[in-house]
Write a protein that binds this DNA or RNA. Structure first.
Lengths: 213, 213
DNA sequence: CGCCGCATTGAAATTAGTCAATACTCGTGG
DNA sequence: CCACGAGTATTGACTAATTTCAATGCGGCG
């Protein structure tokens, strides 16, 4: 059950008292799938990717983690995915033991974390629908809308990740991502000022293409 | 952060004091996506499916819910998916207000629920990998292994759901599911005594095909 | 200036999807 | 007890979307 919105920020801020700041350079690995899960994190600046690999090298990106996002809250004894820096990243690191202790003292904190994890679960369900049932165009349109919503900007989307990253996030190939973006551009639905700088002149057009439920 | 395993059952059993038993017939709907989320549930017997629809009728099944599974723990104000009975189902129903109250009194309960939701999130990440990156054979093999693990049986898997349900769970079509199962059968990896009764003589062979990380 | 990583584009190959016909199963009623 | 019928499953032939393989282009950095 998600916690009430009220004072959620304040409750979570308590975490920062047991946290330390940490820096990562582009392409650094924060932790590997299977490592003992000793800390969880919050992204302060930059972008992280959380990914999983199959034995033959196929990769899936669960999530792009951006400022404000918490990382590995849901971990059991070991991390369930590898976390890597897409760009230079600033993090807060929270030792899990300290978080546990804090939860004893602050029952509200537990509710907050529960709310966050519930939100992630809903996002994951959204993505399963995308991966299982949407066409390439719909996937890209949904992705751009998601990035637009998170970016906070009016009509501009920054894509710090590569086409390959996007492909592994959307269950496509890099080539299909590139072609589909090209198609959207030629249709005038998006503009591009460099591969990582997208302009969305008409969000409605994208929404039509995304065909969300 | 997941709760300790110890006495998890006992803690969750406390929920049953605020719950009532409820029956559903095959094809009944428990609730619709978008309904006000007044209760959450636990499956006692039978199988539910949790599904989402796109505007044009495409469907995705998030999860098959079987005895012991909790339903809609992660709900916000409204349900994020529709829940329907695949077979006749027996449920416990817990009013969310009562659950909230219980959480105040029993801090351990919150930790338990957090653990359950974290488990669901991990399962969802597993499924994203499957939906985004696995072939039809790998999807079916993974699915059968999952059902085998949940079923508890030695080498026998009961499939109470239709081929269409399986398809919408795995991001395939009913025809592909049928063909792929046929292929596994002809290769001797599985046996079939009726469409919903699968025999797995050699789990290792299936595991090889599933090619999990 | 030239290289390296990433992005784009093209053509061929492949997987899974679509459409359509046929078969099976189980429950009902004659 | 058997025949019928609805719903489900299987199978086949063809199509379409995406992947794969391969070449080319672009842009920033040393």
């Amino acid at each position: 059950m998600p916690a009430a919105r009220t004072s959620q920020r304040a409750t979570l801020a308590a975490l920062d008292r047991v946290g330390t700041v940490m820096l990562l350079r582009r392409h650094d690995t924060l932790f590997y799938e299977g490592d003992a899960a000793e800390c969880c994190y919050k992204v302060v600046a930059g972008t992280l990717r959380s990914c999983r690999l199959l034995a033959d090298g196929r990769r899936h990106i669960n999530e792009f983690l951006m400022p404000g996002d918490y990382v590995a809250l849901e971990a059991g004894d070991t991390y369930g995915f590898t976390a890597e820096a897409v760009s230079d990243v600033t993090l807060m690191r929270y030792p899990r033991a300290a978080v546990e202790r804090l939860m004893q003292q602050q029952p509200l904190l537990g509710k907050c974390l529960l709310g966050l994890v519930c939100g992630e679960l809903c996002a994951a369900q959204e993505r399963m629908l995308l991966l299982g049932r949407m066409s390439a165009v719909e996937r890209l349109a949904s992705f751009l809308l998601m990035m637009l919503a998170r970016g906070g900007g009016e009509d501009r989307v920054a894509l710090p990740m590569t086409r390959s990253d996007i492909a592994d996030f959307l269950g496509l190939t890099m080539e299909t991502v590139s072609r589909t973006l090209g198609q959207l551009k030629s249709e005038g639905v998006i503009g591009m000022r460099g591969a990582g700088d997208i302009i969305v002149p008409d969000r409605g057009a994208l929404e039509d293409l995304a065909e969300a439920a």
